[in-house]
Amino acid sequence: MKETSARPADRIERLVNAYADDLYRICLFRLQSAPDAEDAVQDTFLKLIEKRPVFRSEEHEKAWLIRVALNVCADRLRERTRHPQAELSETLAALPEDPALRDLAEALLALPEAYRTVLTLHYAEGYTTKEIARAIGKSASAVKMRLQKGRDLLKDALTKGE
């Protein structure tokens, strides 16, 4: 999939329109911070613009972006030890307004990181356990377990909230 002829503006337009939401979602639930997630998405796109990798298909491109986004998020999580975290209110503002969906999103956001990421990739991106395993560097069985436990934790959290 070559895009050498596309003008930078057109390319950026396409990239942001096609992937910004997906990446933002992944980063938000990984980082638990809306401002950090926005920065991470931008950094991810910058890496793509800078490196200009050649992709076989749009799926390949998306997979690359997701993996880079996860790495960028990992960097930011490490930086957290040195920098203060953003206000939680900013993050909550990014969640859906519908009360039922919001409760679920909040519960998801409160899960441990290991579960948040696999649940996001599975439900939002439709990734299979194998694809998630490849993206986060864990075995498929470990991902399966995390998915299962993540669902259970989510259910528990929602039940307690009722």
Partner: peptide
Amino acid sequence: NVKDALMSV
């Protein structure tokens, strides 16, 4: 529900 909650972000 989980998917809807996520996709609405």
